[in-house]
Simulated scan of single mutants.
Amino acid sequence: MTFALATCTYQEFTPSMGHAVRTTVGPPRGPLAYALAGHATLLAPRREMLGLSYGAYKPRYLQLLDSAGIDAIRAELEEIAVGLDTGQPLVLLCFDRLDKPGTWCHRSMAATWLQEHADIEVPELGAQQPAQPPSLFDL
């Protein structure tokens, strides 16, 4: 890919992070203080997947990405990046904050999938759960 990628929430994103890209089924909840560079529809889950448990959601979402394929996903992201400053990453956005215990999000699954299929790093720019201190058994 000729551009960098990262992930974040709509709520935590600021334009200094890069170019905002929607990856959600529905539009942002309320007005945004920034413009969206595009909508990565191939990275968006399907409406019928909303509300599924993690165990049911993850394999369906990964199958969705596998069905689209890395070439189509890359082409869609490259189309979004046309005319943008490629020194700034495309930041894949969704609603779920990752700093709450037990939370998960499709953008994290997409980031891992992209890292595996395109051999690129896709860092999370939003708040994340603090790392658990090692237990005495881990020392």
Score class of each variant (00 low, 15 high):
P27M: 09
L77T: 05
G102Y: 11
G26V: 13
L65T: 06
E48P: 04
A110R: 01
D85Y: 11
S67I: 03
A44S: 15
I120P: 07
D119C: 08
I70P: 07
E78S: 14
A111W: 08
L139W: 07
G18F: 02
F3I: 15
L84R: 02
A40N: 01
A4G: 08
A35Y: 00
E121C: 10
A72R: 15
L64D: 08
T41I: 00
L64E: 09
K58R: 15
D85W: 10
H106G: 00
A118D: 07
M109K: 07
D96W: 01
L136H: 07
T112Y: 12
M109F: 14
E116L: 08
A44M: 06
T7F: 08
V91T: 03
L62T: 11
V21Q: 01
I80P: 04
A6T: 07
A72L: 15
T23Q: 02
L90P: 00
E12Y: 10
P15G: 12
Q132F: 06
E76G: 01
S53W: 04
T41N: 04
E48N: 13
Y10H: 02
Y57S: 09
Y57H: 13
G83F: 05
V82R: 15
A111C: 03
F13E: 06
R29E: 13
W113Q: 01
C105I: 06
A35K: 10
R107G: 02
A20H: 04
L36I: 11
D66F: 06
R107P: 07
G126D: 03
R46I: 05
E12N: 10
P15R: 10
L36Q: 03
R60F: 08
L65W: 05
L50Q: 13
L139M: 11
A81M: 09
E121Y: 10
T24N: 05
S135A: 11
L32N: 12
I73Y: 09
G69M: 05
G51K: 11
E12P: 06
T14H: 14
G30Q: 10
T24V: 09
D99M: 10
S67D: 14
